[in-house]
Amino acid sequence: MDEPLKIALRKQGIFTTTLQELYNWGRKNSLWPLNFGLACCAIEMIATTMARYDMARFGAEVFRPSPRQADLMIVAGTVTKKMAPQVIRLYNQMPEPKYVISMGACAISGGPFKQGYNVLKGIDRYIPVDIYIPGCPPRPEALIDALMALQKKIDEQHLTGADRPRHLNLDTPSEFPVPQFGAHDLEPSQNPEIWHPPLVHISLAGKDESGNN
């Protein structure tokens, strides 16, 4: 049904919709985030739910302490290597459809603590991330923006076809392997099926410093 006809019908008091629209509308307006704070960003996440920014306006105020009841994981803060297996296990315990917001520089790439020996350089090495918000910490407005971006993403999902979301495609995995604590680092140090490092060509201008010893 084309859009002008729909509008014309609506003016006559006839409401038409598709199953896909109804389904996405319901999902996008009742996201239940996991009550899960890691570091500094968690305080801004709490501030977002409080009276001034009031995330409840977007249907996402019901923070659930249990991953079984949540469908949005806001990775708010630095993921350390000691914490990473727990984060992935929590993600695996969440039911589909589930989404991840990577909040703040640390959760994206390690941020200011990138050079730390115990800091994971981005949660997207182990689990797929839907929305990234930069900032250290991102302001509450940024988190609201991320939430709205996620809602838009959910709204545009097709229930059928090749580009249907993961939870409707039985061939794609919804759980990911949990890394083990090793003697020097996490093992494996990334999930190669999820994490594809961007191809960056590192070179010093004009000089060939290969870095080989």
């Binding site: 890691l38 570091a39 803060g77 630095t78 350390t80 000691k82 914490m83 727990q86 640390c106 603590f113 050079q115 730390g116 020996y117 115990n118 800091v119």
Partner: peptide, 14 residues
């Protein structure tokens, strides 16, 4: 402890 050990001291020494 240690789930938020982000190596502040080591980073600061460099």
């Amino acid at each position: 402890f240690g789930y938020l050990h982000r190596n502040h001291e080591k980073i600061a020494e460099n």
